[in-house]
C-alpha cells in the first residue's frame, strides 16, 4: 500500500543567532538582515516522510507558505528527495497569525488532494507556538498526533506512532488521513544528494520564471512554465486567487491576534554589587550570602 505524504515546511529567521547588527535603534529586530533558514523540525518531518516512502512507497509532496524567497527551502527539500514542491505565496498573506496561516495551508492541501499523512515539525523557531499543525488538522477535519518521536509502522490503513507525553511516552494508533507533528530528535535528516542538487538548483517558482521573462522579450511565461514542468523543474505556485480564498480570512485581516505594542527590553536598573574574581572577592560574596541567611 503506497502512502502519500504532504510535508508542511517553513523558512524562518535564524533567531538563535541574533547579533548586534540586526537590532534596530528601537530595540526591535530587522528581519530582513537575519539569515533565513530551513526550520529544523520541519526538515526532520521531511526525513520521516521520506523514510515512510522508502518503506511503503508513495509520493512525498512539500508545501510552504511564505514570501517568494521561501522557494529556497523547497529546493532544499527537493535536494533531500521530495517528489514535488508547492509555494503558497501572496502579498495578501503577509502578517498572518497561526489561524490565518492554517486556513491558507488547509485550503492549499485540499487543492493538492489525496494524502494519507501530513507531516510537519512540532513548531517553528520564530514563534515557538506549535499551533499551525493542530489548527490545520482541525480545518481539514482530520485527527492529529503531535510530539511524535517515532513512526513504528503502518498497517491496514492505520499508523502506529510513539509520541511524547508529560513524564514519558505513549504509543497510539490512528486512522488515516492524519496530521503528524514531529520532534527534533525523531530522526536525523539525510544529506543532500549531489545529483539532485545539480538538477534541482534550477527548479523555479512562477515568480522566479516571471523574473526571467521580464528580462527577455523572446520568452513567454506559459511556454517557459510548460518547459519547466516537462523537466520536472517547476515549483508549483499558488496565490490567493488560485486557491479561491476568502480575503477576510487571510493575512492581517484573517488574524484575530494583533500586536498591541512591543517594548524593547529595558533592564531593571537595580543596583548590583560587583565582586572581584579573586579569592578575596569570592570570600566577600560568600560572607554577603551568609548575612542574607542563604548560606550557613
Amino acid at each position: 500500500m503506497a502512502i502519500n505524504s504532504i510535508v508542511m515546511v517553513k523558512q524562518v529567521p535564524d533567531t538563535a543567532n541574533i547579533s548586534g547588527q540586526v537590532m534596530k535603534e528601537d530595540g526591535t529586530v530587522n528581519r530582513a538582515l537575519l539569515p533565513a533558514i530551513f526550520n529544523h523540525e520541519d526538515r526532520v518531518a521531511l526525513e520521516l516522510a521520506l523514510q515512510v516512502q522508502d518503506t511503503y512507497s508513495g509520493k512525498v509532496t512539500v508545501i510552504t507558505m511564505g514570501p517568494p524567497r521561501a522557494s529556497d527551502v523547497l529546493r532544499e527539500c527537493l535536494y533531500m528527495g521530495a517528489d514535488e514542491a508547492y509555494l503558497i505565496s501572496d502579498r495578501k498573506f503577509a502578517g498572518a497569525d497561526t489561524l490565518a496561516t492554517s486556513y491558507v495551508l488547509s485550503e492549499a492541501i485540499r487543492k493538492i488532494g489525496r494524502y494519507d499523512i501530513i507531516f510537519s515539525g512540532r513548531q517553528a523557531i520564530d514563534g515557538d507556538t506549535a499551533q499551525v499543525g493542530p489548527q490545520t488538522a482541525e480545518k481539514l477535519h482530520i485527527p492529529q498526533v503531535t510530539y511524535t518521536e517515532e513512526v513504528l509502522h503502518i498497517q491496514d490503513g492505520k499508523i502506529r506512532i510513539k509520541r511524547k507525553i508529560e513524564g514519558g511516552y505513549e504509543i497510539v494508533e490512528s486512522g488515516m488521513p492524519v496530521l503528524v507533528t514531529v520532534l527534533k530528535d525523531a530522526v536525523s535528516p539525510r544529506p543532500y544528494k549531489a545529483r539532485r542538487v545539480m538538477t534541482y538548483k534550477n527548479a523555479k517558482t512562477l515568480m522566479e520564471l516571471e523574473k526571467l521573462v521580464e528580462g527577455n522579450s523572446l520568452l513567454y511565461i506559459d511556454q517557459l512554465k510548460d518547459e519547466y514542468l516537462s523537466k520536472n523543474l517547476y515549483i508549483r505556485t499558488f496565490t490567493m486567487d488560485d486557491l479561491m480564498l476568502e480575503a477576510e480570512r487571510c493575512g492581517v485581516a484573517g488574524s484575530p491576534t494583533k500586536v498591541h505594542k512591543v517594548e524593547s527590553v529595558v533592564l531593571g536598573g537595580g543596583q548590583r554589587e560587583m565582586f572581584h574574581a579573586t579569592k578575596a572577592g569570592i570570600g566577600e560574596l560568600i560572607d554577603k550570602l551568609m548575612v542574607d541567611h542563604i548560606f550557613g
Binding site: 497561526t98 506549535a130 480545518k139 484575530p256
Partner: peptide, 23 residues
C-alpha cells in the same frame, strides 16, 4: 502550555476562530 494544552488549545481556537497566544 503543556503537551496536552498545546495539543488541545490550537484545535479549540481553530474551531471557534479565537485568537490564541502561546507561552
Amino acid at each position: 502550555a503543556t503537551i496536552v494544552g498545546r495539543d488541545l488549545a490550537p484545535r479549540a481556537a481553530s474551531h471557534s476562530k479565537s485568537g490564541l497566544t502561546a507561552d
